[in-house]
Structure formats: C-alpha cells, structure tokens
Simulated assay, not measured.
Amino acid sequence: MNVLAELGIVVAGLVLAIVLLALNFWRAILFLFPHSVRVEPEAPADQMDIPLELAQLAIQLQGLGFVALGSHEEKPRLRKATLSYDWAHPVERVFATIYQTPDGEPRLYFLTPLAPEGFVITAGYRRPALDVPGVYRSGSLADASPERLLRAHLRRMEGVTPAGDFSWEGRVEAGRSWYRGLGRKEIRRQNLQGLLWTVMALAIVASAFLGRRAS
C-alpha cells in the first residue's frame, strides 16, 4: 500500500474519531461523573418565561391544582443547559416539571422526593423502569395526558412517605440530590453507549498515532 493510501486511511479514521467524540464524549463524562451535572435556580414563578410550546401543559397543570414555583437549569459538562419549569401540588405532595428536548419536543414528568431518602418519578415519555421497594420508583406512561399521568404517579406513591419541602428551593435541592445519589444508576444506564463510543474513538486515535510511529 502506498504512502498516500495509508495517509488517507489514517485521516479517515481520525475524522471518524473526531465525530464520535463530538457526539459522545459528554455522555462518557456523564456516565463517569453523574454528580457533575449543575442544577441551579433560574427564575421565580412570577418571572418564568414559558415557551409557547409548553403553554398548554402549563395550563393543564394549573387546572389540576398545581402552583407555579419557578424554573431551574440542569447543565451537564460540555452541553447547553436544559431549562425546566416547575410546579408543586402541596396537597398531593408532587412536583411537576415541564421542559423541551433539543428538538423542541414538550415533556412532562412528576417527581416526589421520599423521606428519609428516595424518589418516585413518573414521566409522560419513555423512561427506564426501575423499582427499589420503598426507596426508588421510576417509570413512564408515554403520551398520557397530565391528568392520567398524575393518577398513575399517585398510585405508585402508595406505601411510601413523601418528604416535607415542596417549595422552589426544595425542588432544586431534589434535582441536585437525584444526580448525587439514586439517579446515578439510571444516568449510567442511559449513557453507557456514549462511553463505549468514546472508548472506541480514543482507540482509533491511539492506533493511528501508534501505527504512524511503528512505520
């Protein structure tokens, strides 16, 4: 094989590795360091600027008795922050959060922190189902209406004790606690593929440089 052909193969491999790293390196970091996601308050309830795409969900939550709390940001390393809008139902002891995916798709999930530690999470989109009795219940009911989703969430809360702080500060702290603790397994399951692609990309880079040295 001539030098130009060898160089072309090396360049193609490096381009592939760069693409793989651009798409997956942040997922690898998230797999290794779930607690690195920064969760910060963004705006109080009276200053929330809810996108038009989420307005209908916001109206439906208010109709179910939820009270607006404020918004918060969740920012993994090397990624743009996701802005989430939070409500609480003090009677039912449930947080509701709506946000948009990078593609602009509206999403809703309900969250109840448990005492002394734990969470019940019910999402209106596909989410891994996990159940650690009395400590952690995570599942989904894809494309369900907010009312139906809330009923499902309340059923899944049977037999557990909700925590006490359903304020805006309590919601932000619940997000931080999830990333630090019980959410780690779910995050790692979601981002394992990103870690594997990152390892493959680094292997391509290493083999390219080691191959050039050997030649």
Rank of each mutant, 00 (worst) to 15 (best):
Q100N: 09
F119T: 08
G63V: 02
R155Q: 12
Y179I: 10
G13R: 03
F110W: 08
E92W: 01
E147H: 07
I204G: 12
W26P: 02
A203F: 13
S140D: 07
S138A: 14
D46F: 03
G104E: 05
L23E: 07
V94T: 08
D86P: 01
M1I: 12
S84P: 00
E74S: 14
L21V: 03
S215M: 10
L64S: 08
W87T: 05
Y179S: 02
P34R: 05
V3F: 13
L32Q: 00
M1L: 12
D103A: 12
A68R: 09
A152Q: 00
R79V: 14
A58T: 11
Q193D: 10
G194H: 10
M48H: 09
G118H: 12
R107I: 00
R212T: 11
A203V: 13
P76L: 11
S84Y: 01
L192E: 11
R188I: 04
T101A: 02
R137E: 04
S177T: 15
I204Q: 12
E158M: 11
L83A: 03
P90M: 03
M157N: 05
F119Y: 13
A17D: 12
P162S: 11
G70M: 09
H35D: 10
P44W: 07
K80L: 15
L69H: 05
P76Q: 11
L23Y: 10
P106N: 04
Y136A: 09
Q60V: 01
R171K: 14
L61F: 13
A17S: 12
G164H: 11
A28H: 03
G13V: 00
V120A: 06
P41V: 09
L196F: 13
I29Q: 01
F209D: 15
A43I: 09
V3G: 05
D131N: 10
A43F: 08
G194L: 09
D49I: 11
I187L: 11
Q60Y: 04
P51R: 13
P90W: 03
L83W: 02
G63W: 03
V3H: 13
I187G: 01
S84N: 12
E105N: 07
L52E: 15
W26Y: 13
L57W: 08
Q47N: 12
A17P: 05
Y109G: 00
G104H: 07
A208Q: 11
W197I: 07
S177I: 14
L4Y: 14
R148F: 01
A203Q: 14
L69K: 02
A123K: 04
H153N: 04
L61P: 14
G170V: 09
H72P: 00
M48R: 13
A55T: 00
A45C: 07
E74F: 08
S167I: 06
I121N: 00
F110R: 03
F119R: 03
